[in-house]
Each structure stands twice: as C-alpha cells, then as structure tokens.
Simulated assay, not measured.
Amino acid sequence: MARRTSRTPSRTAVPATCPCGLSADYADCCGRFHSGSAAAPSAEALMRSRYSAFVVGDVAYLVRTWHPRTRPEGLDLDPGMRWTGLEILETEGGSAFHSTGTVTFRASYRGGSLHERSRFERVDGAWVYVDGEFLD
C-alpha cells in the first residue's frame, strides 16, 4: 500500500465511522492514533490505523509509523483512489508480548483489491510498519 515519491496530497474529509472495519467512530478508533493522543497497541491495530490513514489521506501519520530504515522520503497518494474496505486475514505475533508481527490483509478499492502480508516491529516501544509482500 505504499508508493514512494515526494508529492503530499491534501487530506480528505474525516468519516464518522472508522474506515478500518471495526464498529466504532473514527475519533474513538483510528482517529486517536492519527492525532497522536494514543499509540497503536498491536501490529493489527497499527495496520488498521494505517489503512484508515490511506483512506483519509493522512500522509504524516503514514510516514510517522514507518520504520526509519525503510521509510521513504515522501509519499504520493493517488487522490482518485477510493478505498472501500479492509479484511484482516491473519495475524502472527504483534501483541504486547512480541517485538515483531505480521498482518495479512486484503484492502479493497473501487475496481479491485490489494492482498499483502505486512511486517511490523517495535521501535522505542511503538509499533511501526517495516515492509510488505504482495500476495496473489
């Protein structure tokens, strides 16, 4: 779910219901991670919040939650991309008792879907996205 370039688009309207697929208001779910008032407690929560950041166009959050060794200098999000849903297929590790974790997911968009296994690590106690492998 990452394209590396330097253009930063403006954010889109913030939804009332969280785009991550959990039944909660955006502000009480991923919005609190985006604002910095809370940190994602697990790799899956970070995955969900990063998906939501793609939906609302929060480039700053995406960069902030990317591992320093793999983080791009900038991101170019396609303003025409319309994400329509997230399905978590599998999680391995990634809890409070782990230092690494993987999340396999399918993110749907208008016209198709993206199937990826993402790797996460803790850096200074916070979960960050390392990289991902596209799956068929």
Rank of each mutant, 00 (worst) to 15 (best):
R50N: 03
L114P: 14
G57W: 02
G132D: 00
S23V: 14
P15E: 13
A40C: 05
A43D: 04
H67G: 01
S49G: 01
D78P: 05
V63H: 06
A2T: 15
S52E: 01
H67P: 00
L75P: 12
R110A: 10
T100M: 12
G36C: 03
T65P: 06
G93A: 15
E90Y: 04
L77H: 01
C30P: 00
A40Y: 08
V56L: 02
Y61V: 01
E87S: 13
R7K: 12
T84H: 09
D131N: 15
G21Q: 14
E73Q: 07
C20H: 03
P9R: 02
R106C: 14
V103D: 00
A96I: 07
A38E: 09
L89A: 07
C29L: 04
L62P: 09
R69P: 00
T104H: 07
P72Y: 03
E90G: 12
D131M: 06
F97W: 09
S37C: 07
R117T: 06
G31L: 04
L77K: 00
D131W: 09
S95L: 05
C18S: 10
A24N: 07
L62K: 00
E87F: 15
H115C: 08
A2F: 09
R48Q: 05
R82Q: 15
S49W: 00
S35Q: 07
V128R: 12
V56G: 01
H34A: 01
R69W: 08
A40V: 10
V63S: 08
T8D: 10
S113Q: 07
A43T: 05
D25Y: 03
A53Q: 08
L75H: 08
S108M: 10
A16M: 15
F33L: 02
G101V: 03
E121P: 10
M47V: 13
S42L: 14
Y51C: 02
S37Q: 02
R71E: 07
Y61K: 01
A60M: 02
T102S: 13
G80M: 10
T102I: 10
T65G: 06
A126M: 15
P72L: 06
S52V: 01
S95D: 07
T12K: 13
T12D: 11
V128D: 00
P79S: 05
G74P: 11
P41N: 07
E87C: 11
L77Q: 05
S23F: 13
R7H: 11
D136C: 06
E121M: 10
S23T: 09
S113D: 07
L77P: 00
E90P: 10
T100E: 05
M47L: 06
R82H: 09
L135C: 13
H98L: 03
T84L: 08
E90L: 10
A43F: 12
T5S: 15
T102H: 12
A107T: 09
R122N: 12
E116A: 03
T5K: 14
Y26P: 01
